[in-house]
Simulated scan of single mutants.
Amino acid sequence: MTIPARDLLETARRELAPGPDDNRLVPLVAAGKAGREVLGALAGEQYRIINSDWRSFLTLAARGGDGPTREFFAGLAHGEGLVLPKLVTFAAACGMDEAALREYRPRAGCQAYPAYVAWLALNADPRDAVLALVANFAAWGEYCGAVARGLREHYGFDDNGCAFFDFFASPAPEVEQQALAAVQTALDAGWDSATALGYGRLVQDYELMFWNTLAG
């Protein structure tokens, strides 16, 4: 009998979840102990990540072999387009205009994450990429929620300045339903999730590398 997609997603999230002390930067921002220059670097790195992931998700949508997989990645790409202006607003609150964002010199440890997502877009079975990426979304959302609270409580950022992080911290039931549909379609077709879980572990490792590179 085919296992339900929801069970597989919950198992993947549980197995791939980071430990409470694995991320060194988010607790610093949440407590107001990170320097403002770190916030600017966060904006600069994310500017490149959002633009890169947008293209990667469109590539995965184009490569998807079934409708639900294509819809999932097309939805993610649409979200990147929606959130990019919010990132520019966050950067402005950090004292960086778009020229400064474009001129920012990224760090290899931060850009390893989007480089790996781009690798998945070109090399992975898109069905594997669905599970690998969606398993990481819960941790990313929690990090963004903690950063948003820290920005408001300790750095004086208003709702506009926090909107980038609020976007990812907010529940996204449509994305969840699209992910479930894509995974269930794959399972019904006899897809094996073992490779996807391996990809997911690397996604999580690169995610932590991003934050911890900024933590110094």
Rank of each mutant, 00 (worst) to 15 (best):
M1N: 11
M1Y: 14
T2P: 09
T2E: 11
R6P: 13
D7A: 15
L8F: 07
E15S: 13
E15F: 06
A17Q: 00
P20I: 13
L25N: 00
V26R: 02
V26Y: 05
V29C: 12
A30P: 02
A31K: 01
A31Y: 04
G32H: 03
G32A: 08
E37D: 14
A41L: 09
A43H: 00
A43K: 06
E45M: 03
Y47K: 01
R48C: 04
R48K: 10
R48G: 06
I50V: 06
I50S: 07
S52Y: 01
D53I: 15
D53R: 14
R55I: 12
R55H: 14
L58Q: 12
L58P: 09
T59H: 07
A61M: 04
G64D: 04
G67D: 10
G67W: 08
E71Q: 12
F73A: 09
F73W: 05
A74R: 01
A77H: 13
A77D: 01
E80Q: 14
L82Q: 14
L82M: 10
L82V: 13
V83Q: 12
V83G: 00
L87H: 05
L87N: 00
V88Q: 09
V88T: 07
V88P: 04
F90K: 00
A92F: 07
A93K: 02
C94W: 07
G95C: 13
G95I: 15
E98K: 11
E98F: 12
A99Y: 10
E103V: 11
R107D: 05
R107L: 13
G109W: 08
A112N: 05
Y113F: 12
P114R: 04
A115P: 07
V117E: 02
W119F: 08
L122M: 07
A124T: 08
R127N: 05
D128Q: 02
N136H: 04
F137Y: 14
F137E: 15
F137Q: 15
W140M: 12
E142Q: 15
G145V: 14
G145K: 14
A146L: 13
R149E: 11
E153A: 14
H154Y: 02
H154G: 04
Y155K: 05
F157C: 09
C162W: 03
C162Q: 10
F165Q: 03
D166L: 01
D166Q: 11
A172M: 15
E174C: 12
E174R: 14
A179Q: 03
A181F: 03
A181E: 06
Q184R: 09
T185I: 11
D188F: 03
W191E: 03
W191H: 02
D192K: 15
T195A: 11
T195G: 13
L197V: 09
L197A: 02
Y199N: 00
G200C: 02
G200S: 12
G200D: 05
R201H: 08
R201G: 05
Q204Y: 02
D205S: 13
D205Q: 14
E207G: 00
L208Q: 08
N212K: 01
T213G: 14
L214D: 06
A215G: 01
